[in-house]
Nucleic acid binder design. Structure first.
Lengths: 206, 206
DNA sequence: GTCTATATCCAGATAGAC
DNA sequence: GTCTATCTGGATATAGAC
């Protein structure tokens, strides 16, 4: 095979894998791992079901890869947030806004949330997936640190920092799920509603 | 068959059905409809898989029956709440407390939440289940009414009432999911954290 | 009412042709 | 790289004995 063709093949391979991943993400999120058939994925990707095995060796492999992506993106985003030169209050606000916004325009964000939830809730997932799910704790830790900082500087309410971080995360999660259910009808609620859990007075922007 | 025996059989039948339902609820909640095998249910119920078909004609039938229960219970609870002779503030507070408490001691509440979510998120569910899911709107309506009343009497913040009801529901939902994930480790967070979304000042109980 | 055995079907995965 | 054909396994559902 000429170098020219080899390059082309590599490109095709990358494109195909991306096709498959993106279609599988939607399917896994909206049907679940078990209910998603390998033919669902191949059909959505406009390839034969046999060809799919040329790119992935099983349905589970695709799932695990997507789940790893989901966590990597989520963790990277949260760590980046923590490092920003902003006050804890601004960080929380930004996190809420970004999340709500992301759901609105980029459906993949919501799909990733659903995937993470699915992996966390359901027991019938590959062992590798179970390992990845353990990273979940890290997300809570980062958020607890931000909350604690906000309490130290006096802006945040003084409830148990872990509780606050839990309620915060679970609320965003709940919204992501609602978003997925609503589909195009979803309209992001005012971020200040959630902010009320953290601070006493929401500064008026008028 | 003597009337005596007929009675006994009826009783056995009821007990069995209840066994099956309760085991299926746990399994559906923790594995999902598709991943739950009929043998999982029969094994958990200590009966042969053949016998299960004596009580239910399919896996889907059990799922639909449980989902209907879940919605009926949820709607009944919310409508009862609305009718209570309490202020909107007290109603919201009670709803939060009851939910958090229910999760803690009665796992079935959390399982029902998970079932409802699963049915709402996943497309691969029986048509009958899809019909039941439409009742979801009713829950939001009731809650929006309570929020609106709380705004009229001046106790609640003045964000869009629908937004507030959405955030409220989705937050409880998120907590239910977290609860399910945490299992025995779950410790209900302070209800006042969530109350912060509704009111400016949480009255101190000290 | 309950079990074991069996028939049927469908999905996952492989093999081989182009 | 891509497809069609095929093998294999597992899960649903039924049948028939006790």
């Amino acid at each position: 095979m000429s170098p020219r063709n080899k390059e082309l093949n590599e490109e095709i391979k990358d494109v195909r894998r991306e096709q498959i991943r993106s279609n599988a993400l939607k399917l896994f999120a909206s049907k679940g791992l078990a209910a998603t058939k390998i033919t669902d994925i191949s059909t959505a990707s406009n390839i034969s079901q046999g060809l799919l095995y040329h790119y992935y060796k099983s349905k589970e492999e695709i799932f695990v890869e997507l789940l790893r992506d989901a966590y990597d993106k989520m963790i990277a985003a949260v760590l980046a947030l923590e490092r920003l030169p902003l006050s804890p209050l601004e960080k929380v606000k930004l996190a809420i806004e970004k999340s709500l916004q992301g759901f609105d325009e980029n459906k993949d964000t919501a799909y990733y949330y659903l995937l993470i939830n699915q992996a966390a809730i359901f027991e019938a997932i590959p062992d590798e997936a179970k390992e990845i799910v353990k990273k979940r704790a890290l997300l809570h830790e980062v958020f607890t640190r931000i909350v604690t900082a906000g309490q130290k500087d006096g802006t945040f309410k003084k409830y148990d920092a872990k509780d606050m971080s839990v309620v915060f995360w679970t609320s965003l999660n709940g919204l992501a799920i609602y978003n997925a259910i609503q589909g195009a009808k979803f309209k992001a609620p005012d971020a200040n509603i959630l902010m009320g859990m953290f601070i006493e007075e929401v500064p008026s922007t008028n």
